[in-house]
Amino acid sequence: MGFLKRRLRQFKEYDDIAEIGDIARRYFVMNAFDGVLTIIGVLTGSYAAHVESASVVISTGLATSIAMGISGLWGAYFTEAAERKRDLDELENHTLTDLSETRIGRASRVAGFVVALVDGLAPFLSALIALLPFFFSVSLGDIYLSYYLSLGIALLSLFGLGAFLGKVSRENIMLWGLKMVGAGLLSIGLGYFLGGWEGG
């Protein structure tokens, strides 16, 4: 317990120095949004193509989620590492000391790691949650019920993300939620009509 408390306090200190929370919050919303919209694309495409096998939707969706997760992890880690190294170098030029082994250097490294984790997990988990009904499609019976439920969960997730942004900006939570749902509906509409048209 003492160990955990110490670690949490240390993380709080690093957060104060490197502003990890603010950046992680941005990455979380941006990438969870990406994750949900991508999975909406996969679902709408499969629906328009009349894919009636849950395992096909699951494997396509999972592979997409994993790819998004890895993309987030890799992309954010190296981007953050590069940006933070540049910031640290600039600070070192001012103080004329090596800061890599100080609290600032450590905070900078922790920030890169935490932000990458958030960036990777946000799209992966948000996509996975939207796919959940397909794992129970045998119990649900009709495969199309899984589609509707999945799309419903995806839209609900988008609403949740919008509401979160509304809370962050201290504005109307409902309005922000609906703005995000709008993107999901547009994606479903365009995907369905274009996919349906393509499929004849």
Binding site: E13, D16, I17, T95, L99, I104
Partner: peptide
């Protein structure tokens, strides 16, 4: 002492 803005002087 010359120091960066963060950590703050309260913390230090």
């Amino acid at each position: 002492v010359l120091k960066p803005h963060e950590p703050s002087i309260i913390d230090l």
